[in-house]
């Protein structure tokens, strides 16, 4: 890479391809092979799932694909709006989870007794699947919107909490000693030592959680009828047997999930570089 960068003029694209062939070719071949096998099995009638080409051949789906921004009111909106609605819920639940998770994580990380008191509970609750929270959430809140946000929160909070607590526990004794010898105030210790030191751990938790939250929202929306959101869109399409619509929605979900993860990685590299 450095070679091409330093000599961009020497037969440009061809040389670039020569160097990057090994990196680019295998994933392209893999994806293409997978799509081909899928299309073949659909064409041969081995499965009733429509092939990837159906995204273009089905008129409905093609429209959804080509016009993600249409809005005809009610639930009939383009996939962009559906996704945005889901993302909005994720954002609310996730921010709540981050605030509670980091706060509780620091408390638990600093205080051994608190840790002993709550750790079993945390370990137990984090094993409960997001979908199992849905009926409980509906019972508690009686409404779809807050229930969905609660499900996001309860799914996303554990990795943040546990990683933050670990990050605080892992602050090197040396830094504690420095703080002790300088008789640092609590505030200085918190801002200058604790947070920067635990930051990589906190970000690991945040990054795991964003993926989980996105997984959970789809699951939550599927069972919550009558709301705008990509989860319910899938459920609705299934009810009406628009299978190729579902395939398209899945592509959107995967793409957005990937973007969210990259976003967190970028944020992490910006805020706590090289630690």
């Amino acid at each position: 890479m450095t070679i091409t960068a330093s000599t961009p003029s020497s037969s440009g694209p061809l040389l670039w391809w020569k160097h990057h062939r090994k990196l680019i070719l295998p994933p392209l071949l893999g994806i293409f092979g997978f799509l081909l096998a899928w299309q073949l099995s659909a064409s041969l009638g081995l499965t009733r799932l429509p092939g990837p080409l159906s995204l273009f051949t089905e008129t409905r789906t093609r429209e959804l694909l080509l016009y993600p921004f249409y809005d005809r009111g009610g639930l009939d909106k383009g996939l962009f709006w559906q996704t945005l609605a889901s993302l909005g819920r994720v954002a609310q639940g996730y921010v709540l989870a981050a605030v509670v998770g980091i706060g509780a994580g620091i408390a638990v990380g600093l205080n051994k007794t608190l840790n002993r008191a709550f750790d079993p509970l945390f370990q137990f609750l984090r094993m409960v699947a997001p979908l199992a929270w849905v009926p409980i959430a509906l019972v508690i809140f009686q409404k779809n919107q807050p229930a969905a946000i609660f499900v996001i929160f309860i799914t996303a909070v554990w990795p943040i909490l546990i990683n933050t607590a670990e990050g605080v526990r892992q602050i090197p004794q040396d830094y504690h000693n420095v703080a002790l010898v300088l008789q640092m105030s609590k505030k200085t210790f918190f801002l200058k030592v604790l947070i920067p030191s635990a930051l990589p751990y906190i970000f690991t938790g945040l990054r795991i959680s964003i993926g989980l939250a996105w997984l959970a929202i789809i699951a939550a929306e599927i069972v919550m009828s009558g709301i705008v959101g990509i989860g319910f869109f899938i459920w609705d399409a299934y009810q009406q047997n628009y299978v190729s619509d579902i395939v398209l929605a899945v592509v959107w979900i995967g793409g957005v999930g990937l973007l969210l993860d990259r976003l967190m990685a970028w944020l992490q590299s910006r805020i706590s570089p090289g630690q």
Binding site: D174, Y175, V178, V181, K192, V193, S272, Q275
Partner: peptide
């Protein structure tokens, strides 16, 4: 009674 530690104990983010 300030201590100079073996592993420097500088805060790496400062």
């Amino acid at each position: 009674k300030m201590v100079v530690f073996q592993n420097y104990s500088l805060l790496p983010w400062l």
